[in-house]
């Protein structure tokens, strides 16, 4: 079945696709950022080939060694090779960062567009709840939810979703209010399509772009704040290597062994840099498309 409105949206998308292929290669930021992240993931996949050490096994006779050709980043207070632990943590930390943005984005977009599209009391209720969540101190919420659900990654995702969805809901609602009045949506309505169908096929694709632009800047902040959570002792289970908890565990040694704190943080900076560049590039590509 061919629908007029579908055709319009489809055409936009076709254009977009062709444009994207061309523009992606013209964005140095995108390439550098993507390359940086890719290189880190590759390094972590090849961790066992790159470094001969075990990330978890202790060697209590070789503790707190400064960086050297044998241990590039030195060893920690359990005699574990810090460089190896940093490498092994790449995948976990990236996963935490990406999922911690993805979940709130999905929930926020859904509720926000529902509010914007349906209007009326649904909108009022959702937007009041958004206001409450925006003004609620992030940390109280996260610590409390982790305490209620028990520790672990799942509760961390739930907590970060509850803490982060409201911003996306705002964006979605704002965009929807504009799109709702657009011609093709009015046409689809006139043709008697169901609300759900209009929302999913005609409206959502159009609000994803601004959401992604926001998400790319958000993801850096979220990665940084998830590592802060393990700095406060609320993250992953030891002895799993994870950058935030490595820094937290190294803190008692800052006077005597700086490398426990400084070097694992470099990995976070690299990821943050990669993501920032990737986000800037992506935002440029998506903006020019519009």
């Amino acid at each position: 079945m061919s629908e007029p409105s579908m055709g319009m949206a489809g055409r936009v998308n076709d254009w977009g696709l062709r444009w994207r292929e061309a523009r992606w290669l013209q964005q140095p930021a995108l390439l550098v950022g993507g390359g940086l992240l890719l290189a880190m993931v590759l390094a972590s996949l090849l961790a066992k080939q790159i470094s001969p050490y075990d990330p978890i096994a202790q060697n209590l006779s070789n503790t707190l060694q400064p960086p050297s050709p044998v241990h590039w980043f030195g060893t920690d207070n359990f005699g574990r090779d810090i460089f190896t632990r940093v490498l092994h943590a790449v995948q976990l930390d990236l996963q935490i960062g990406v999922l911690s943005v993805l979940f709130p984005m999905v929930v926020g977009l859904f509720l926000g567009s529902l509010a914007g599209y349906l209007g009326g009391w649904v909108e009022t209720v959702v937007m009041r709840v958004v206001d409450v969540f925006t003004a609620f101190p992030f940390l109280v919420m996260v610590i409390a939810i982790i305490a209620i659900l028990g520790p672990g990654l799942t509760s961390m995702y739930v907590a970060l979703t509850l803490a982060g969805w409201s911003a996306y809901a705002r964006i979605a609602r704002g965009e929807i209010l504009v799109i709702k009045k657009a011609e093709y949506v009015q046409a689809a309505r006139a043709l008697g399509f169901s609300n759900l169908r209009i929302m999913f096929r005609h409206i959502l694709p159009n609000i994803v772009t601004p959401a992604i632009i926001f998400a790319m800047s958000d993801i850096v902040l979220v990665i940084l704040s998830t590592t802060s959570l393990s700095f406060l002792g609320l993250g992953v289970q030891p002895p799993t290597p994870e950058w935030g908890s490595m820094i937290a565990e190294g803190r008692p040694f800052i006077m005597t062994a700086w490398w426990l704190v400084t070097l694992p943080g470099m990995a976070i900076v690299l990821v943050g840099l990669g993501l920032s560049l990737l986000g800037d590039g992506l935002a440029d590509v998506l903006r020019t498309e519009e």
Binding site: L224, I254, V261, T262, G265, I268, V271, G272
Partner: peptide, 11 residues
């Protein structure tokens, strides 16, 4: 912008 503030602070 890519530096975690607690890490930056510690350094």
């Amino acid at each position: 912008l890519s530096m975690p503030s607690f890490w930056l602070g510690l350094n």
